[in-house]
């Protein structure tokens, strides 16, 4: 499947192979991929995009699997994007999220794609926004995005997801401390997974304590739920809570402004893309190694080099 029109039409008809090929193009950032996102953007914007984030090992994949099963029981069509980190050394990646999603991914109403972060910071990959557009246009009405195992600064998910679910597990040491600055502020729903373990209630209380101090949510107090995702416990309640948040977004008008709010982030992403491309080009300039040495020795101002990168051409020597 290599023909642009076949892929584009196939996506609109919900053909999984076309969706898969479209996602590959979007990930590669090729002209085909850009054209695709542009042409599908108009038919997207209907899906409820749900982000699932939290530290490594809290059970995000297992929870996404359980949630997808519940959503299917309600007749929803579920797209899943799971992001794993790329190696900073080789650029390769092991994408293992499917291991814990075996039950849901075989359902014909579920489409699951693993994405490597490819050097992108923030917990997602550069292609995630385009990938959401493709799944949305293909008719998946609920899209679950699992971020890389996140710490304090992987908060980009809030730009993409209508509803961000922050997952924690009891007994991860000083877990609340670790999330209080970044991730705690972006959660609209909190889940304490592995709630059959000791300390679950303590974790719930700590989150509640933090949230009562927070001021980010004037008209939505983030609920805190307990789940045991492996056994499906608490997952029905989680689905209801997420649906409740969507309702809140619609009645408060946030849902309809969402794309507008998102637009600034999207522009920033494109700009970042361009700059990175400029930087990669600059690395091939004959002056580059000499410049680096000169900066290291304090003979050259890094801003002068950055200006050259910005303009896409080496500056003239005085």
């Amino acid at each position: 499947m290599k023909d642009w029109l076949t892929v584009q039409t196939g996506i609109r008809n919900g053909d999984k192979r076309a969706v898969a090929r479209g996602l590959t193009w979007v990930e590669q950032g090729t002209d085909n991929g850009k054209r695709l996102v542009k042409s599908l953007f108009g038919s997207a914007g209907r899906a409820h995009v749900i982000g699932v984030t939290g530290a490594p090992g809290v059970g995000k994949s297992t929870l996404v699997n359980a949630l997808a099963l519940h959503l299917r029981q309600k007749g929803r069509y579920v797209g899943i994007l799971a992001v794993d980190p790329s190696s900073p050394f080789s650029g390769g990646a092991i994408l293992g999220d499917r291991i814990r999603m075996q039950d849901s991914v075989m359902d014909p109403g579920v489409f699951m794609r693993s994405l490597a972060s490819r050097g992108h910071l923030g917990g997602l990959s550069r292609a995630t926004f385009g990938a959401v557009t493709v799944l949305d246009a293909a008719g998946f009405d609920t899209i679950l995005i699992e971020t890389v195992g996140a710490g304090q600064s992987e908060v980009e998910i809030m730009q993409l997801a209508h509803t961000t679910v922050v997952v924690l597990a009891p007994g991860l040491g000083d877990d609340i401390q670790a999330i209080k600055a970044g991730i705690l502020e972006i959660g609209q729903v909190f889940v304490v997974n592995k709630a059959d373990r000791d300390g679950a209630d303590h974790t719930v209380r700590s989150i509640r304590g933090m949230l009562t101090l927070a001021t980010e949510h004037p008209d939505w107090m983030p609920p805190i739920l307990k789940t045991v995702a492996e056994r499906g416990e608490g997952v029905a309640a989680l689905r209801e809570t997420i649906d409740g948040h969507r309702q809140h977004l619609e009645t408060s008008g946030i849902w309809h402004q969402f794309r507008r709010t998102q637009s600034e982030h999207v522009v920033g992403q494109v700009l970042e893309d361009w700059l990175l491309r400029h930087l990669n080009e600059a690395r091939g300039w004959p002056q580059w190694p000499g410049w680096l040495a000169a900066i290291a020795e304090g003979r050259l101002d890094p801003e002068r080099v950055a200006e050259s990168v910005w303009h896409g051409a080496p500056y003239e020597e005085d």
Partner: peptide
Amino acid sequence: RDAGMEVVYTGLHQTPEQIVDAALQED
């Protein structure tokens, strides 16, 4: 992975249907 490839691993005991479905979706 160390050679710079992206490797999807799906674990043990996979049926042919599961494998081909995963290969298709992961392209």
